[in-house]
Simulated scan of single mutants.
Amino acid sequence: MACENSSPRPAFLLLLCFLLGTASARLSSTFYFTSCPSALHTIKSGVNSAVSSEARMGASLLRLHFHDCFVNGCDASILLDDTTNFTGEKTAGANDNSIRGYEVIDTIKSQLESSCPGVVSCADILAVAARDSVVALGGPSWRVLLGRRDSTTASLSAANSDIPAPTLSLSDLITAFSNKGFTAKEMVALSGSHTIGQARCTTFQTRLYNESDINSTFATSLKENCPSSGGDNNLSPLDTTSPTFFDNAYFKNLQTQKGLLHSDQQLFSGGSTDAQVNTYSSNSATFMTDFANAMVKMGNLSPLTGSSGQIRKNCRKLN
């Protein structure tokens, strides 16, 4: 049925046209099957190579997707470089001197442009790379829906306001994730991504020297690398038990007050999410399933589809 004709139509036909248009704009797991059959293999190969060289890169690529999606949706806006007349999101408080993995995405994009020029979006690369990074570090897999397009703008202010800070209280964390459509349970599951990766001293320094709900032996072990002043960029693993393996140790650490960030320990502090932490601590399979489902939901945050946005040839700049 053609919906372009401007002649009058019954209301039910107009509704059907709308629904068909909405359906065509949805993401699909088979989006590149014919237009770029090698897309998923190319992304996976690039991720595996990067993670093999440095396990921490897996956490960095997962975080890159998260910080992209939480700012006006999964549209690769985080990848845009600043120019003389354009300010992107890379200098936002949560990203500056912290977000990494851009070069890995650049390499993958370059390979895809060689084999399928102008076809695979940077936003889709970020989504698939996040999944492949988790799998490379022993975590669960999930079906990544594809068909996102890349934004033609970015928002420094939204990056500063929407990405949850490591100093947030439990109620503020619940609100921050609720604002993006996530339940408190999904927030706890997604926080489990901190079972991999590292954090800079500046993000947990205040907790280390001023908070009481922290294991004293754990705190002492951290202070040498994170003094009360200075050493802001010194790194410590978010999960000291198995920092390069995606498991449920993060939640077990919270039970013994070994959460590195203030926001981590807030999940197990006598509040409403304690029971969920206990569940994930005792049942790894439940955590893996809930995390994978929450990541699918994450990837569906306000994607640009259809004629919106563009397919950037270089992820760092507009065409």
Score class of each variant (00 low, 15 high):
residue 231 G to P: 08
residue 26 R to A: 07
residue 234 N to I: 07
residue 269 S to I: 00
residue 167 T to Q: 14
residue 168 L to S: 08
residue 255 Q to L: 15
residue 135 V to A: 08
residue 305 T to Q: 12
residue 282 S to F: 04
residue 68 D to Q: 05
residue 187 M to A: 01
residue 298 M to N: 04
residue 141 S to M: 01
residue 118 G to N: 06
residue 72 N to L: 12
residue 190 L to R: 09
residue 290 D to N: 14
residue 87 T to W: 10
residue 288 M to P: 02
residue 16 L to K: 12
residue 171 S to M: 10
residue 22 T to D: 13
residue 19 L to Q: 13
residue 29 S to G: 11
residue 110 S to P: 04
residue 284 S to E: 15
residue 272 S to C: 03
residue 299 G to R: 03
residue 241 T to A: 12
residue 27 L to S: 07
residue 19 L to D: 08
residue 10 P to E: 10
residue 5 N to Q: 13
residue 141 S to Y: 03
residue 156 L to Q: 09
residue 115 S to D: 12
residue 218 F to V: 00
residue 17 C to V: 06
residue 46 G to H: 03
residue 258 K to N: 15
residue 167 T to P: 11
residue 195 T to N: 13
residue 75 D to W: 00
residue 1 M to H: 14
residue 247 D to M: 09
residue 220 T to G: 12
residue 27 L to P: 05
residue 21 G to C: 11
residue 279 T to Y: 04
residue 256 T to Q: 13
residue 200 R to D: 11
residue 77 S to R: 03
residue 52 S to N: 14
residue 262 H to M: 10
residue 111 Q to K: 13
residue 170 L to P: 00
residue 240 T to F: 15
residue 60 S to K: 08
residue 130 A to F: 00
residue 293 N to P: 04
residue 140 P to N: 01
residue 35 S to C: 09
residue 46 G to M: 03
residue 121 S to R: 00
